[in-house]
Design a protein around this nucleic acid. Structure first.
Lengths: 143, 143
DNA sequence: TCAAAATAGATTGTGTACAATTCAATTACA
DNA sequence: TGTAATTGAATTGTACACAATCTATTTTGA
């Protein structure tokens, strides 16, 4: 009879490798992110602002799967660094609108090198990358 | 000419979906882990102790990709809950040995249901699960 | 053999994550 | 129209994660 605890082994779990790989890749980003003085979370927040130029905290939370409890302090830090501005919407004062400063816009040109640098570290085949992307997308939809 | 900032879009990144899916799955664990009064980190630590019965912090760190800065407080919490014991090795006092208590062993029988419960939430095909596992393993090796 | 190097954990400080609660602004509706 | 319900952020409290430093123990090598 097969060990009834087989399912409790780390190797047999799906979540643990995801958790571990995700953490290790984020760690790989560190030296490159240090160059632009951003943490990984700050980086993905900036990616949203670079794409949108104008976002509310709620919209950003939807894109990044983060809530205001996480975003508020990160956004305040980025504001202190002079990369973004936080202003209340005039139409609806409940909404906080995040916009890029010139300094934040300038950082985009430095950050544009990062994805290629990470790609160089990862050594993953294009087919695997596409397949992985597809599966992750599928999982995300069921959640 | 293609947008030179294309690579900075969230959708085109490999790390971000990994990070997001990993976080969302951990969140899916919560209600089931609440039943056994464990957080996700405490759960994977317990999984190591359930498999090994006897581990040092260093060995555990290698398996979980976590350092003592993370593990020390988690292990102290689990000790307070009465699930494990922390004792120094007699052969080498630098090593801290983690062992199961009867209560910790008993919890294994409750936890054994969790993987199936998560599986029921995920709705991922067996083929995709295998493929995902394979790719993640491959990435982990290059890191 | 004994001081220097190495090793294993613990500690400290910073930065997320997230649930739960609070608060202010807006909307709904009796 | 005025109060109740809703909404969007901020706040609070708990729990990681990790770099950097510190401490105690063990091992090495001149």
């Amino acid at each position: 009879m097969a060990d009834k605890y087989q399912c409790l082994k780390l190797d047999n779990q799906l979540c643990f490798p995801l958790y571990a790989v995700s953490k290790e890749i984020v760690r790989k980003y560190k030296p490159f992110l240090d160059e632009v003085d951003l943490t990984y979370t700050q980086y993905i927040v900036m990616m949203v602002v670079w794409e949108e130029e104008q976002v509310s905290v709620k919209e950003m939370g939807k894109k990044l799967f983060l809530d205001s409890g996480t975003l508020t302090p990160v956004l305040k830090t980025l504001e202190k660094k002079g990369l973004i501005e936080r202003t209340r919407s005039k139409e609806d004062e409940r909404n906080l609108i995040v916009t890029l400063t010139p300094s934040g816009k300038a950082l985009k040109d430095k950050a544009v090198k990062i994805p290629a640098q990470i790609g160089g570290c990862l050594n993953i085949s294009p087919e695997d990358a596409v397949e992985l992307h597809k599966i992750l997308h599928k999982i995300m939809e069921t959640l």
